[in-house]
Design a protein around this nucleic acid. Structure first.
Lengths: 211, 211, 211, 211
DNA sequence: AATGAATGAGCTTTCATTCAT
DNA sequence: CATGAATGAAAGCTCATTCAT
């Protein structure tokens, strides 16, 4: 009995279990502490079982990234799509991001740990390795909605925004949002949503066309 | 024959050599790749020589952090101090930061890799471990000039800035600045100075008191 | 396929093999010579295999101690229990000890090397470390039969023995018996049984109530 | 300016300092913990200084043994020599030994640690290595007084003692006396003198000729 | 008389991975 | 599906010893 992906139910359940365990381990102890043995112990299965379901450690990491990424996209994409103006979309993007981090602290931390730390055998970072290997394509079609660059481009084009560099603005925004994850990693009580609101104000003031 | 610090000439030279090597290794291959053996190979000395000059690996990392931190402080603190208004100080802070990153790409990357990845034996992050040990006080007296929080507080107090959260603003700014390091790590040709100018604009618009 | 203890056949066999190897190495070269590598070489397996079956070096040592201790207890306890008078028990205790040493030279030497040399990470000796950790209780219920103190106490109580210090007598006896191990370590032909008989005489004369 | 042994005053002072330091380290942390570096740190000099005064680590150990041995001989030999009967000498031997241990706890512990643990490069124990190298002759001429064998032989010969094995008796006595050192190592408050008195009684009863 | 520098051998331990069952 | 067993590579670190000054 196979579901889609050619995986049986148990197979799929085990994979999720392992990925979840990996995320928890990474979020708690950092990327460097995530060995296969620790993940197996945490989940309560034998080390070999982990490597039976995932051929290498990198596969586990990739699966974890994909899982969190999909999870985030499912929240953010609709929120952005619901808005029509560039300013609206920008605010929605920031708020849904902050919201995701606040609601999925563990996943967000693990994701950031992985992204900043992962190196392939050849020393390539996650994004470089991803673009090097063809098979690993981004999971969704509306990826555009996840990259705020498009929002900035649109805003400049239709005159909502002042003349600005979409690339730099996108980098600044992503960095500011990722910064919230570092903060909440250090302090679980950090007010991510409040921080998000401040960011909304900042980017509103910083982008709107001068009167 | 001793110079200040109670260190011999050779000792001081070797230590610098090792610290520099460590920074290069970390910037190139990530924090995880910085083993004592790799550093020794990179520098061209025996592994035991490294451990003769630094008692533990943590000591090497600490020395690297201190070196880069001091280097940065020497550039940033005077630039900020030269300005009198909060807006001026903010712009100077951003520009000197961007400038430092552009001029010291390797050091900046290594510093960020260390800060985001270091974990003590008990799993504490760099800042937590530092605050846990009293003896390790920050190297400079004008540390205040390195933390932009004071700038935001002052600006709000004297009416230059709108009513804003100094903490959130500082976090957003630091994250945006650190983001430049990630970008330049991925792409050595990234225009960090241009990015800094965009940030100056962003934070000017986002902070100034409404008319 | 598991036998009792939750261990596989292979597992149990390997563990015995390693423990035996450790005992041989220690008896031959002293406690200080017992590195994991040497044990592995001696047994003819890879160093990592040793650490697959025992998590740490201390675990190997503990297993060796337990093995020899149990072995000795199985010989001594029944011999002592078979006697009814204090004098009889004392003689049986001495003879069975001497007998064990004569028949298990290697084990006895290793045991003594470990007991006199083991230090935990905190510098505690074997007995101190053992009493510090509650979970590690002695393996047998009739442990009392292995501590000659009870014999001396009983003999004084029922008038068989002169008035003497059970503690001092026990220390003297244990030291004299352990001394036989040092002798046989230096000279494999040492007549341990003859020595034991002399000890029987000594302690008989030294303990019996004056007429 | 050289004193006997061809050593200058400073030289001799340094050597004593180092030997004393080694004895303290060994008594505190066990033989295995006594590295040249630790000894140097403890004494407050550079590691190289230690190896300037002693060519190898073994030399330090040998010097420590010789120092303690001489110290003990100076106490025990006269005490034994002062007695005329075998029984008197035996009691004096035991009492002076116990007395030495009680008054020189550290030295006694270190001595015992060394004797039971020292192995030469070829794996030989201290006594074996000593008898293998000619140059290392015992420090005193009246060594006979330090080996209780002679006492037992004399006592048997002149009829004071019962018919007994001088070798076995000597081994039992030495072991019992060394046992006191292990006890005091574990418990600094152990009543070594009281233990010695019990031993005097034991060996008196155990050796005297039957009436 | 003293010491800083260097070094290779060895130590315990962790880990990703392979293989047979 | 699942697992126990095995293993080599590499990690951080300690140490006795040599050498030049």
């Amino acid at each position: 009995m196979r579901s889609r992906d050619g995986l049986t139910f148990t197979e799929q359940a085990r994979r999720e279990q392992i990925v979840t365990g990996a995320i928890e381990i990474i979020a708690t102890g950092g990327y460097g502490s995530a060995s296969i043995g620790k993940i197996a112990d945490h989940v309560g299965i034998a080390k070999s079982v982990v490597l039976y379901h995932f051929k290498t450690k990198s596969d586990i990491i990739a699966a974890a990234v994909a899982a969190v990424f999909t999870q985030a996209a499912l929240l953010i994409a609709p929120a952005v799509a619901a808005e029509t103006t560039a300013a609206g979309r920008l605010a929605a993007y920031i708020r849904s991001n902050a919201c995701f981090v606040a609601d999925n602290r563990t996943s967000a931390i693990a994701m950031l740990e992985i992204v900043t730390n992962f190196r392939s055998d050849q020393g390539l970072r996650l994004d470089e390795a991803a673009s090097a290997s063809v098979q690993e394509s981004p999971p969704t079609g509306d990826l555009a909605l996840l990259d705020p660059t498009t929002i900035f481009v649109a805003g400049v084009d239709n005159g909502e925004f002042r003349s600005l560099s979409p690339l730099f603005m996108k980098n600044a925004l992503r960095a500011a949002l990722d910064g919230a994850v570092w903060e909440i990693a250090r302090n679980p009580d950090y007010d991510v949503v409040g921080y998000g609101e401040e960011l909304v104000t900042v980017f509103e003031l910083a982008t709107r066309a001068q009167s």
